[in-house]
């Protein structure tokens, strides 16, 4: 039997009837049609499906859709505003932190959460934070560089009173 859930994704409210066995990942991708969030393993082992659920980074493949009832989800499509990307999105391009791109949405969501909570992470803290996001292409070198670069510039911006849009 399907359950009716109401959830907010990237600021929009959706009312959807879902089978309890469908995961939040399936709901986001198949019911809502936001396919930026990727299914890499479906077992919570690769981090490609990372979204923010009530502000916390989670593997959306380990959350049931019904559990997201009356909760708020931010996906990769919810970063930036469509015209102006998030600084992390720009930095990933600039630093070559993307190769095949399949891990990228989850990686950026995890990194965004890190910088929101810890604006000046050390290299080790960045590595700790993203250790649940597997990447087979880059060896993580440029990903770490990109995150640290944004941390530096956002810190500079914050100190100068900029970045009020965030």
């Amino acid at each position: 039997m399907k359950c009716l859930i109401r959830l907010k994704v990237n600021g929009e409210t959706y009312e959807i009837a879902v089978e309890p066995r469908k995961t939040l990942l399936d709901v986001i991708r198949n019911e809502i049609g936001l396919t930026g969030t990727k299914k890499g393993c479906n077992m919570g082992e690769c981090g490609a499906c990372t979204v923010l659920l009530d502000g916390k980074a989670v593997c959306s493949c380990l959350v049931l859709g019904v559990e997201a009832d009356r909760r708020e989800v931010i996906t990769i499509e919810g970063l930036g505003n469509g015209v102006h990307p998030d600084p992390l999105q720009e930095a990933f391009v600039k630093h070559g932190a993307i190769q095949c791109g399949f891990c990228t949405p989850g990686m950026i969501m995890t990194a965004r959460k890190l910088l929101d909570e810890n604006p000046s992470p050390s290299e080790e803290e960045v590595r700790e934070a993203i250790c649940g996001n597997l990447c087979r292409c880059t060896g993580y070198v440029k990903i770490v560089e990109a995150v640290l670069d944004v941390a530096r510039s956002e810190k500079g911006g914050r100190d100068a009173g900029l970045l009020s849009h965030r």
Partner: peptide
């Protein structure tokens, strides 16, 4: 215990 995503849940 596991990475951030697991610790959060």
């Amino acid at each position: 215990v596991g990475p951030l995503q697991i610790r959060n849940r």
